[in-house]
Amino acid sequence: MAHTHHEPQGEELADVARATLERAGEQWTQMRAAVFGALAGFDKPASAYDLAEAVSADQGRRVAANSVYRILDVFVAANLARKVESANAYVANAHPDCVHDCIFLVCDSCGQIVHLDDDSLTRGVRSAAQDAGFTPVRPVIEVRGTCAACRRAA
Rank of each mutant, 00 (worst) to 15 (best):
D117Q: 14
V91R: 06
L116I: 09
D101G: 12
A87N: 03
A128E: 04
C107F: 10
V106R: 12
V125Y: 05
G133F: 01
S109K: 08
C98M: 09
T122W: 00
Y90K: 12
N88D: 11
S86W: 01
D117E: 10
V106A: 08
A128H: 00
A128T: 07
V137S: 09
V84R: 13
D131P: 06
V114C: 07
Q112Y: 08
D97F: 06
A129R: 03
V114K: 13
C107L: 06
A94P: 10
S120N: 05
H115T: 15
Y90F: 15
A129N: 10
V91A: 02
Y90C: 11
F104Q: 09
L121P: 03
C102K: 14
I113A: 09
Y90I: 11
H95A: 14
L121G: 01
H95Q: 03
G111E: 05
V137C: 09
T135F: 00
R123F: 15
Q130A: 08
S109G: 03
V99H: 08
I103P: 04
Q130G: 04
D118W: 12
N88W: 01
R123H: 12
C110V: 04
Q130H: 06
A132R: 07
D97L: 04
V137Q: 13
I113K: 12
C98A: 09
R126K: 11
G124V: 06
Q130R: 15
A87F: 03
A87C: 02
V99A: 08
L105N: 14
D108L: 09
D108Y: 02
C110R: 07
N93Q: 12
R126Q: 03
A92C: 07
A87W: 00
L105E: 14
I103D: 02
A129C: 03
A129V: 02
G124F: 08
N88G: 01
T135G: 01
A94T: 14
G111M: 03
D108P: 03
N93L: 10
R138L: 09
D101A: 10
G133A: 06
H115A: 12
C102M: 10
H100Q: 13
D117M: 13
S109F: 02
D119C: 06
G133W: 00
G111L: 03
Y90L: 05
I103S: 01
C107V: 07
A87D: 10
N93I: 04
L116E: 10
L121F: 07
A129H: 02
L121D: 04
D108G: 03
H100N: 12
G133N: 05
L105F: 15
A132I: 02
I113R: 09
H115R: 15
I113E: 14
H100M: 05
V137K: 12
T122E: 04
I113N: 14
T135Q: 06
A94R: 13
H100S: 09
F134P: 00
R123V: 15
V106Y: 07
H115S: 13
A87Q: 15
D108R: 10
S127Y: 12
E85N: 02
R126A: 03
Q112M: 07
D131A: 15
D131T: 14
